[in-house]
Computed example of a mutant assay.
Amino acid sequence: MIKKMEHIAIIVTDMDHTIQYYSDMFGFKVRLRGSSKTREMAFLYLEEQPSIEIELIQDFEPIGKYNKSGIVNHLAFTVEDINIAINHYQKKGIKFPSPQPQLTLEGGRMILFYGPNGELLQLVERAID
């Protein structure tokens, strides 16, 4: 029986740059970083929600080609006010493909953008109950 969501894995091309991006941009911290003969891995977490992590994987010699859009479509982050968040992250260098947030099915708002490895990321402002 499933107890909780564990982590989302992202294939990366530059581990140091990706860790720096998620740390500087969003405040993630490294819980564990290590390597085997074939790959390097790192697990990142947010202090406010340490039970869900991002696993970064950099294969030294990739086994075949990874699909550019990947199997996992996107990684979403909750924000309190999406307009404030967009302004904040634009100042930090994020370029948003769409000029404004879109409505979610629940009546909230969201906006998509790309991370340092081309991974699709999303900011979500939940609907107020």
Rank of each mutant, 00 (worst) to 15 (best):
K3P: 00
K3A: 10
I10Y: 01
T13S: 14
T13C: 04
M15G: 01
H17S: 13
I19Q: 02
Q20H: 11
Y21A: 00
Y21W: 15
Y22R: 03
S23V: 05
S23A: 15
K29C: 11
V30T: 14
L32A: 12
R33D: 00
R33P: 01
R33A: 12
S35R: 10
S36P: 03
T38W: 09
E40I: 10
E40L: 07
E40A: 15
M41K: 08
F43L: 14
Y45Q: 05
E47R: 09
E47N: 11
P50Q: 08
P50L: 07
S51Q: 13
E53A: 09
I54K: 02
I54M: 08
E55W: 06
I57Y: 00
D59Q: 14
D59E: 15
E61L: 11
G64H: 07
K68S: 10
S69Y: 11
V72Q: 06
N73R: 11
N73D: 14
T78C: 08
T78P: 00
T78I: 12
V79W: 06
E80M: 07
D81C: 07
D81F: 09
D81R: 11
I82S: 08
I82E: 05
I86W: 03
Y89V: 03
Q90F: 02
Q90A: 14
Q90L: 05
S98C: 05
Q102R: 12
G108H: 08
R109C: 05
M110E: 12
I111L: 08
I111Q: 06
Y114G: 03
G115S: 02
G115H: 00
L121D: 01
V124S: 02
E125P: 08
E125Y: 05
E125A: 06
E125Q: 15
I128T: 08
I128S: 13
